[in-house]
Design a protein around this nucleic acid. Structure first.
Length: 507
RNA sequence: GGCCCAUUCGUCUAGUGGUUAGGACGUAAGAUUUUCAUUCUUAAAACAGGAGUUCGAUUCUCCUAUGGGCUGCCA
């Protein structure tokens, strides 16, 4: 282990929107960097030109920004190790691939895609489903190991298409220590001669990744478990180049909540929850919904994601980003895949929503949810509704009657609670309201209590009627606080308007 | 099929060679509340199976099972 400065990277491919598993990988990298006074880098791995999706890179940067996962180096941000998009680094890779060939760690291969497919087909027909280009099969293929030197030279000079493959050594145990899983050992006989440099002039992931991690002085590679099988090969590549390998940490996968398998694009809208941080519109006009647009707070989303495969070892579950930055360690990341739970996600959301100050939430409703009311007034609405809301917009929809007179009245409450004498009872209560000296929740409550005592009635026989007239609802926050909020004039107006409306319903 | 990784309540997880195996979400019941939500209390709920090591294994080892990943000129 070295004491080099911590530099970590998140390396997405712009092949579509980043899903929450990717966001979590980015988050863990970010947290690890923060915790260790390190640098968090974003590097876009767009070496597959055929899978490039316009807009995906912007989406990724935007989504991470929303989450508060802010890189210190990356595309559009800069840094002394740029460029941070691999297609812009294209010319850098070939010499490294050539170097491997020169050192007998790699070789040129001229087999076409069609030829390879034919070989695989043939092998399958003979009962060998896993044909690989490796130390035994490569001797019967068309490459610089089997072809005469002058023919190889001629083909290269002719511009014949070729790839550069890794020359995987035979029967050698490769060991490396994963920070999450401990020692992992793989025999090279199970590894194939991976293509490092493609015939289109681009490197594959394996080459670009190792070269860039080296050039960018990456100290820790924190990535998804799907990379674990190829990690030994990467270790071998570092050896072949004579470079010190970074430390590896392979994160457990995010699994789908129902049944089996890793979380995928389609799961979200099928199961009724987002798998993406933000909305994504496909070129075909389809929409994959995102947490942001559903009204989730980024801090809730991040908190939930952080706990999928990590825990602080204490009973604290609600964390701000700052707290996560202070508490995160790779040692406490679990090994097994995690199914995420939409219900618990909601719970995180509720907890974080409550933690937002009333004024801030009011401002958010104005900025992002189209609220038009005065901010001070809105803050009071927030205060009254916040505890029973899950999303910011719930405050607006469930508390709509606080800002506008109700036009509909809950039928069930009308049927159950509104009696013959309710009109006169409420009219009488209205006259009491007119007499209250200071129109505060406490005063209203005192007056109300003495009113029902005088009438010999229970709270349950009277208050629901009052609520019905003022809000149209059968349930909600304290009626006394609602009354204070509305003000005497409005309360009286609503009683006047409500009585005939409910009576009409009763017919 | 081959290789690799994993396995504690339904879910996320804590934990230990000897514990009443802890917490959270969800579920159920109760209390509080005019009501809904909140809050509080309580309950049900787990060490995949089999060998071995050991005085003793959920914990260590092996096997099996199950799940997952990889097996492309994708990343």
């Amino acid at each position: 282990m070295s004491d080099k400065p911590v530099r970590v990277r998140f390396a997405p491919s712009p092949t579509g929107p980043l899903h929450m598993g990717g966001v979590r990988t980015a988050l863990y990298n970010y947290l690890f960097a923060k915790k260790n006074n390190g640098t968090f880098i974003i590097r876009v791995e767009d070496t597959d030109q055929t899978r490039f999706v316009p807009g995906a890179q912007d989406y990724i940067m935007d989504a991470l920004h929303w989450c508060g996962i802010i890189p210190t180096e990356g595309p559009g941000i800069g840094g002394e190790f740029g460029p941070y998009v691999q297609s812009e680094r294209k010319e850098m890779y070939k010499p490294y691939a050539e170097q491997l060939v020169a050192n007998d760690k790699g070789y040129y291969a001229f087999d076409t895609a069609e030829e390879l497919e034919a070989v695989r087909e043939q092998a399958k027909a003979m009962g060998m489903p896993n044909w690989q280009y490796n130390s035994v099969t490569r001797m019967s293929m068309k490459n610089s190991l089997t072809l005469p030197a002058d023919e190889v030279k001629r083909r290269l000079e002719n511009g014949d298409p070729y790839v550069i493959r890794m020359k995987m050594p035979r029967n050698q145990d490769v060991r490396f220590e994963d920070m999450i899983r401990g020692w992992v050992t793989v025999n090279t006989n199970n590894l194939d001669d991976k293509v490092l440099f493609k015939s289109d002039g681009m490197p594959t992931y394996h080459l670009a990744n190792i070269v860039d991690d080296h050039l960018m002085e990456i100290s820790h590679v924190i990535r998804g478990e799907e990379w674990l099988p190829s990690a030994p090969m990467h270790v071998l590549m570092y050896e072949a180049f004579g470079w010190e390998a970074p430390r590896f940490a392979h994160l457990p996968l995010l699994l789908r909540p129902d049944g089996n398998g890793k979380l995928s694009k389609r799961d979200g809208d099928r199961l009724g929850f987002p798998v993406f941080p933000c909305d994504w519109h496909t070129a075909e006009g389809e929409l994959y919904s995102g947490y942001r647009e559903k009204g989730y707070l980024p801090q809730a989303f991040v908190n939930m994601l952080a706990f999928l495969g990590w825990n602080p070892g204490t009973t604290q579950e609600i964390f701000t980003m700052k707290e996560l930055e202070e508490s995160f360690t790779l040692e406490r990341v679990s090994k097994a895949g995690a199914k995420f739970d939409p219900e618990k996600t909601k719970w995180f959301q509720q907890q974080h929503l409550r933690a937002v100050a009333d004024e801030d939430l009011a401002q958010m409703l104005i900025d992002k949810f189209g609220a038009t009311a005065d901010k001070t007034k809105l803050a009071k609405v927030v205060h009254l509704m916040k505890e029973r809301a899950t999303f910011p917009q719930d405050i607006l929809s469930e508390g709509a009657y606080l800002l506008e007179r109700p036009t509909a009245f809950d039928g069930q409450t009308v049927n159950k609670k509104w009696k013959e004498d309710s009109s006169s009872l409420m009219t009488e209560w209205k006259s009491k309201i007119e007499e209250i000296t200071s129109f505060s929740a406490a005063e209203i409550e005192t007056t109300f209590k003495s009113f029902i005592t005088d009438k010999g009635l229970g709270i349950g026989a009277v208050l629901p009627l009052f609520r019905l007239l003022l809000t149209g609802q059968g349930a909600g926050p304290s009626m006394f606080e609602i009354s204070e909020f509305l003000g005497r004039e409005e309360v009286i107006a609503r009683i006047d308007a409500g009585i005939p409306a409910v009576e009409a319903l009763k017919q």
